[in-house]
Each structure stands twice: as structure tokens, then as C-alpha cells.
């Protein structure tokens, strides 16, 4: 009897998941991937590797605070490496329905520079990740279709096709493999306007941190140039009680040292 109940529950649940519309899956995925907890602190190492194997490194500390899940968000980034950007800070106030506000602080000039943020397809610190890959994209900007279910690396995944409603992105659509268990994207393929995959994101390692499944190693590969960027997250901490006041010009100019050590 017990077994029957469990079986029934599993069946209802899975059919529920299956019938869940693609947009809702993407919303849950975004929350699991970019909005875990109320805030987050992480030390990020990016390795930018060219097709010939030449490597450059970016090391930064990122602070994030969510105002609402799937909605407004604040980001604060402090650069540790390379030496010519050491001490630079970068701040984003992200809004779901309008362009982000972005600021860069250049210590050598003690200058805060506000940056126009229209083009979200611009590279983030010279890597294969764009600004949008780092901080996400409004769910309503794309049309989402559930293509199929598929097992990827031993995990059941929902395969979703997302087509931008406006033709202002370098890709014509992308296909995401969303884990049914964690709702994290395990793989994303970006298709260019001739229908060929040109860029692939993979989640290479997922760890459970304070109860939040977290992609701690990821790679973005550019298949056309052979260039790739490998990112690892260390010292991930959630819910550290980041105040909104951290995400202001005051701390852009004077990095909050206790948080960045």
C-alpha cells in the first residue's frame, strides 16, 4: 500500500513537472542559478584560454544581493588580479524591466565612471561570458519551448529552447538542459543565425552549499575561435546579511575590506 502511494505521488509529480510550462521551468531555473538565497559572496577565478593554450587569469570577489527573486538585484565586484586592474571595483544595479545601471571605479584616478549598459552581449572582462551570461536575462524577453526530456551526465534534464523576441542578440536561439533535480542549467548551446552551435556553456561541477546546489565549476567554449573560459567558485557563502548600503558609490570608492578578505 505504502509503495503504491509513493508510486502514485511520483507519477503525479513527474506529470506535473512535465506539464509545467517551459516559461515556469526557466523561471525556476533562473532562481536556482542566479537568485539562490538572499545574498551571496564568492571568490571567482576565471581562466581565459586561447586555442593555442595561452592563458590569462581574472580573480575577483563578487557580492550579490537580491531585492526580489527573479527581479531586482545588486552586484558588487572587486578585482584582485591581474595586477593592472587590482583594486578596481564594478557595481551593477540590475532591473528586470529596464537597462542596468553600471559603475566602474578606477583607483589610479580615484574616479567613478558610470557605464552605458545597453549592449548586454558585450564580453565580461574579456572572457567568453557576456554580461548577460553572468547576471541573466529577463524571462519574458524570450519565448520558451519544452522540447523533450533527456538524460545528461546521468541526470534527468528538461530541454528548453529559448528564442529572443527581439533580434538584437548575437544568437538566434539557445537550448538549455535544465536538471530536474536542482533546476540548474547543466548545458546551454547558443545557435547563430545560420542555425549552427557556436558557443556552449557547461556546468562542470555542482556542490551543495548551505543547502543550495551551486555550480562551482563552469566553462564557456567558443566553438568558432576555440577560445574558452573556465570559471571556478571558491569560498561560496550564502545569507551573510549583506546590506543594501554596500552597493553604493561610497563602497565602490572604498571597498568594504572585511568582506573582501
Amino acid at each position: 500500500m505504502k509503495h503504491l502511494v509513493v508510486l502514485l505521488m511520483v507519477l503525479t509529480l513527474s506529470s506535473y513537472v512535465y506539464s509545467e510550462d517551459a516559461k515556469e521551468i526557466m523561471r525556476r531555473s533562473q532562481n536556482a542559478f542566479l537568485y539562490q538565497a538572499d545574498d551571496m559572496k564568492v571568490k571567482v577565478t576565471m581562466r581565459l584560454i586561447s586555442s593555442s593554450g595561452a592563458e590569462r587569469r581574472r580573480v575577483l570577489t563578487m557580492l550579490r544581493r537580491d531585492v526580489t527573486d527573479g527581479g531586482r538585484q545588486f552586484y558588487y565586484i572587486y578585482f584582485h588580479e591581474p595586477p593592472d586592474v587590482k583594486g578596481m571595483t564594478f557595481m551593477v544595479h540590475k532591473y528586470p524591466d529596464r537597462d542596468d545601471d553600471r559603475w566602474l571605479f578606477i583607483p589610479a584616478l580615484n574616479m567613478v565612471k558610470r557605464i552605458a549598459a545597453r549592449d548586454r552581449a558585450s564580453s565580461f572582462v574579456g572572457s567568453d561570458f557576456t554580461y548577460e551570461d553572468v547576471s541573466g536575462r529577463d524571462i519574458d524577453e524570450d519565448e520558451h519551448q519544452l522540447l523533450r526530456k533527456e538524460v545528461l551526465k546521468g541526470e534527468n534534464c528538461l530541454v528548453i529552447k529559448s528564442i529572443p523576441r527581439k533580434e538584437d542578440m548575437p544568437y538566434s536561439y539557445r537550448i538549455s538542459w535544465i536538471s530536474e533535480k536542482t533546476y540548474l542549467p547543466l548545458k546551454i548551446e547558443y545557435y547563430n543565425h545560420t542555425g549552427k552551435v557556436y558557443k556552449v556553456f557547461t556546468a562542470d561541477e555542482v556542490k551543495n552549499i548551505q543547502g543550495y546546489p551551486t555550480v562551482v565549476r563552469r566553462t564557456m567554449r567558443n566553438l568558432q575561435s576555440g577560445h574558452r573560459t573556465e570559471v571556478s567558485f571558491e569560498e561560496v557563502k550564502y545569507n551573510i546579511g549583506l546590506e543594501e548600503g554596500i552597493f553604493t558609490e561610497r563602497f565602490l570608492r572604498r571597498p568594504p575590506r572585511s568582506l573582501l578578505r
Binding site: I115, A116, A117, R118, D119, A121, S122, S123, P170
Partner: peptide
């Protein structure tokens, strides 16, 4: 007036 017209 500052604007990004295309990538980078």
C-alpha cells in the same frame, strides 16, 4: 551622451 552601439 554615452552609448554602446555594438559589442565592445
Amino acid at each position: 551622451y554615452q552609448r554602446q552601439f555594438w559589442r565592445d
